[in-house]
Computed example of a mutant assay.
Amino acid sequence: MVNARDAIEDVGEIRIVTEGLSLTGPMERDRATVPPGDYVSVKVIDTGTGISADKLTKVFEPFYTTKRVGEGTGLGLSTAYGIIKQTGGYIFVDSTPGEGTCFTLLFRAFKSEAVKAAAAPEASKQSAKHADGVVLLVEDEAPVRAFASRALQLRGYTVLEAESGEQALEVLEDPDLHVDIFVTDVVMPGMDGPTWVRKALETRSGVRVIFVSGYAEEHFGDDQARIPNSVFLPKPFSLSELTRTVQDA
């Protein structure tokens, strides 16, 4: 939705279309093979500027962006791609320059009877994993921050959000505020993750830290090594990977 909005320069339209899709045979597209079966299709369609053919094959690559410098990190679509693939789904893109773009998401459809049958054991499994604690989540990309915040709240955590290192330090100025874990992106505009965390730990030395990044861990390994009680979670990550890392931190 954010990319669709940004692609519209003046006045335009964004539509979300959902429908059931039954495949009687395999569907091959973009080096992917979708097996036969019932699916739920979700399409996000915009009437923006569109994407040229030579760029379409790169839109899901980490750090690739068609936006101007400072307007995007190039991680939004790669993160979405990773999440969708890890749930067993598929994502495809069609675009015509000057006319707009359509992202199609396919997810396996489940019959209500199967969902009901699985509900009881799944509910007990989730309750067993229910946790508590206060997490300060620092991420400059709003869609990624919203996904991570929702995932942690569903596990029982109280989540405080900040879109920058500077804002995170402002939140921590409250001496009565208790925080158990910092979850922070590494590369952000302004103050980066390791920098603001080091400042915060000067007065909150016992807080555990999870660094999140699309870069390989070795790119900032020395910074992380100097920060106690810190671990690394690579992007893109799934909901279960995020919550498990927070629980184990």
Rank of each mutant, 00 (worst) to 15 (best):
F232N: 09
E28S: 15
E139P: 02
D180E: 07
R226N: 11
G48A: 07
E202G: 15
V231Q: 09
A216K: 13
S41I: 03
V209N: 01
V246A: 07
T57R: 04
E61P: 04
G133D: 08
P228T: 15
A32S: 14
E161L: 14
G206P: 02
Q247M: 05
T24C: 13
T104E: 09
R150C: 10
S22D: 14
S230R: 06
I8G: 02
L154G: 13
G89K: 08
K116F: 11
D192S: 04
G37L: 10
P35W: 06
Q224E: 14
V34L: 11
E19R: 15
L233K: 09
E166T: 13
S240V: 12
G48F: 00
Y64G: 04
A4V: 01
E141G: 04
V207D: 01
P236C: 12
T243G: 05
L136E: 04
L233Y: 07
G156E: 08
V187F: 04
H130V: 12
A216G: 15
A53C: 03
T104D: 03
E218T: 14
F147R: 02
G12Y: 01
D94M: 05
L106S: 00
E241N: 08
L172K: 02
I45T: 03
T184A: 02
V209L: 07
L233V: 10
T18M: 13
G20M: 08
E141T: 06
D192C: 07
Y90W: 10
F92L: 02
V40M: 08
G165K: 04
T243L: 05
A4Y: 00
V212L: 03
P62L: 10
